[in-house]
Simulated scan of single mutants.
Amino acid sequence: MRFSRPAVAGVVGVAAFVFGACLAASLALAQEVEPPAPWVKLTGSHAGAVGTCSIDEPTDNEACYMVRCDAKNGLIFEIGDAAVGEMGLRSARFEIGRYKETIRLDGNSPDRRMIVLSKHPKLLAALTSGADFATMYAVEADVKYSTGYELTGARDQISRMARGCPTKP
């Protein structure tokens, strides 16, 4: 049985499309990507911080990635998400442009994890580098988890926060 070239090309094209769709769906399930949200001054339960949240008006149940001034530690990066305690998140791998590092997180509450930025100046430099996007992967957690969040406006917001924040003694 012989097949014409257009018929073979059509079958190959359909197979490639189906494979691509399956691959895209599996990648979408494996990584949560927050909707675009530039860095701003946060309000509500996150008042006093600058960052980005998964919605415009964050609640305690929404994921937020933020920087705040802590009287004891200076600038801190904080992950605020009701799921971090449930996931057992203890370490995270950050990828921002060329910066790639796994960092142990401090747990200051069941729904928040933090990093003292004076101990991780490369993370602070990456957050304020002008990169558009950051990716974070859970390490040593009860579940596999990764997320991405926007860094648009992070440089200006974090710089303003840093000017008014005393450094750790």
Rank of each mutant, 00 (worst) to 15 (best):
C22T: 13
L124H: 08
K122I: 03
V139M: 10
Y149W: 13
S54Y: 00
T128Q: 13
A82Q: 05
P38C: 04
R90W: 08
R160G: 09
P38W: 01
E86K: 15
T128L: 08
G97K: 04
N73E: 14
A24V: 06
K41M: 09
S129F: 05
S45Q: 13
P58F: 13
F19S: 14
L123T: 10
D106M: 08
E34R: 13
E34H: 11
F133A: 07
I55A: 11
K119E: 13
M66D: 02
A37D: 00
S26V: 15
E32L: 11
L123H: 12
A82E: 07
N73D: 13
S129P: 05
F3T: 14
R104M: 05
R163E: 11
Q31P: 00
Q31D: 07
A15M: 12
Y137H: 09
I115W: 02
G85S: 10
G48C: 01
I103T: 10
A21M: 10
G44H: 04
G13Y: 06
K122F: 05
C165A: 01
M114I: 01
S54V: 04
A47P: 06
V33T: 14
A25D: 14
G80W: 03
C64K: 02
A154L: 03
A82R: 05
T102D: 11
S26G: 12
Y145E: 10
A9E: 08
E86I: 15
P169Y: 11
A154R: 00
C64M: 05
L29Q: 08
M66G: 02
Y145P: 06
D81I: 07
E86Y: 15
I79G: 02
I158K: 01
T167K: 15
D132A: 13
T152Y: 04
A141Y: 11
G85M: 14
A134L: 02
P36V: 14
G153N: 06
A71K: 08
Y65E: 00
G48S: 03
D156N: 10
T135P: 00
L105F: 01
N108T: 04
N61H: 07
D156V: 11
A71R: 09
T102N: 10
S91W: 07
E34V: 06
A47T: 03
S26E: 14
